[in-house]
């Protein structure tokens, strides 16, 4: 595999369009972690035209809910959850300026269309490597919806967070292009 491309958050259209499916990336900067219940809340607030507790413009959301942090560590184990559950809410968030998502697994055609329209990118992190990923989370804090516990929104400062561009802003999708190369 090629060496990782370094990227810093927040993202913008210029940075996003340079990322191509199959690129290994190394992310540094602030990202948010949010999953099912938090997405539902964000979506409902946007629909009602109300202000969100986090700014989405240029941001990356990591679909994840960490384990509690062990003393002496900066974050608990944290890896990607399966992304399709966020699909019903995602186009609305992309329309609000969200530029990147980190997760695992398939996305709906509606999400991919919206990613192309809004120039956004979907990164894959490796499911089930949460202890390893936690090493790249240098700071972690709950910034919204603490009542949701495991599903609260976290803000992470990440350094050298490794991910793979799975679906790029042109809609090129590794989940579609790679497996046929190995199928018999």
């Amino acid at each position: 595999m090629k060496e990782a491309t370094k990227i810093a958050t927040p993202l913008n259209e210029e940075k996003v369009i340079q990322l191509k499916a199959g690129d290994l990336v190394n992310i540094t900067g602030y990202i948010y972690a949010a999953r099912d219940a938090a997405h539902k809340r964000l979506f409902e607030l946007i629909q009602k035209g109300q202000k969100l507790s986090i700014e989405l413009k240029g941001q990356i959301i990591f679909y994840a809910g960490p384990t509690p942090t062990k003393p002496g560590y900066s974050c608990g184990s944290v890896g990607p959850t399966t992304s399709y559950r966020m699909d019903p809410y995602t186009p609305t968030l992309l329309n609000k300026g969200l530029k990147g998502m980190i997760g695992k697994g398939l996305r709906s055609p509606e999400v991919i269309e919206s990613m192309k329209k809004n120039r956004a990118v979907y990164f894959g992190a490796i499911g089930g490597t949460a202890a390893l990923i936690s090493k790249s989370i240098r700071k972690s804090e709950v910034v919204a919806y603490e009542d949701l516990r495991a599903e609260a929104i976290y803000r992470f400062y990440v350094k050298d967070f490794l991910a793979i561009v799975v679906i790029d802003s042109s809609g090129y999708n590794l989940y579609e292009t790679e497996p046929p190369k190995y199928s018999k």
Partner: peptide, 23 residues
């Protein structure tokens, strides 16, 4: 690459007594 990361993760989790997966 993915398999290497999975193996590395399992070793770290066991050594430091961290959950293998956040779920």
């Amino acid at each position: 690459y993915v398999l290497k990361m999975i193996i590395e993760n399992n070793k770290i989790a066991s050594r430091e007594e961290l959950p293998i997966c956040q779920d």
